[in-house]
Structure formats: structure tokens, C-alpha cells
């Protein structure tokens, strides 16, 4: 992939993250009182709402893509041997996908799982 394509992705995820994190922060304390925002009932209703649940999933993917690509940038600027660069590119990709998968599992189970 061209470096400018990755950078374009970095910009797009940055703008989306600013918007989505902004909404997320507002919902967790400003528009909804903090104590209520973390209550079981409230969290459940957020995950079970199609729009709110989808926004959380998009937030997850966007922030992780942006964050792990940023980490990759820092690491490849640190050392430049071919094996380091290749290792960093793969390790960061795997770590990002694994974290996304784990977070997505939470979103899916919270939205569809049996409440106990």
C-alpha cells in the first residue's frame, strides 16, 4: 500500500475519531450523568439500540485503526532494519485486528446475548 493511502486513512479516521469520541465523552457524563451512564440498565440499552450500538462498533474500529497506525509510525521511525520494519508492520496489523475482534465480540454479545 502506498504511504499516502495509509496517511489518508489516518486523516479520515482522525476526523471520525474526533466526532465519535466527542459524542462518546458527551454521553458518558455531560448529557447523561456519569453514575447513570455506567449503570447496567443504561449500558444494556445503549448496546441494544441499533444506532448507538453501531456507533460504538464504528468508534472501536476507527480508534484502533488510527491508534495502531500511529504506533506503527513511531516504531518505524525508531529503527530501520528491513526485518524490524517488516516485523512492526505485521505485529501492529495482527494486534489491531485481534483487539478489534475482542471488542467486536463484546458489542455482539452485549447486543444479542442472554442477560444474566
Amino acid at each position: 500500500m502506498r504511504e499516502s493511502t495509509l496517511m489518508q486513512m489516518q486523516y479520515v479516521t482522525a476526523v471520525l475519531a474526533v466526532l465519535l469520541v466527542g459524542v462518546h465523552l458527551l454521553m458518558q457524563g455531560v448529557l447523561v450523568p456519569y453514575g447513570e451512564a455506567v449503570s447496567f440498565q443504561r449500558v444494556l440499552s445503549v448496546y441494544r439500540d441499533a444506532v448507538d450500538g453501531a456507533l460504538l462498533e464504528i468508534l472501536l474500529v476507527v480508534v484502533l485503526a488510527h491508534g495502531f497506525n500511529g504506533l506503527r509510525t513511531i516504531l518505524i521511525e525508531w529503527r530501520q532494519t528491513p526485518s524490524w520494519t517488516r516485523g512492526v508492520n505485521w505485529a501492529v496489523l495482527v494486534a489491531a485486528l485481534a483487539t478489534m475482534a475482542y471488542g467486536t465480540r463484546t458489542v455482539i454479545l452485549a447486543a444479542t446475548g442472554q442477560v444474566s
Binding site: 447496567f40 475482542y102 463484546t106 442477560v115 444474566s116
Partner: peptide, 20 residues
């Protein structure tokens, strides 16, 4: 945070939203 929110569904081995 992705780790701590997963406790909503019972942690790494949970199967659905769990109050406990």
C-alpha cells in the same frame, strides 16, 4: 478500556450481559 468493557458480557469467557 476494551478489556474492562468486556466485563459487561462476563469477561473473556462470558456469553452475554451479566449484572454480577
Amino acid at each position: 478500556h476494551i478489556g474492562d468493557t468486556s466485563f459487561f458480557v462476563g469477561g473473556p469467557f462470558g456469553e452475554g450481559p451479566s449484572r454480577a
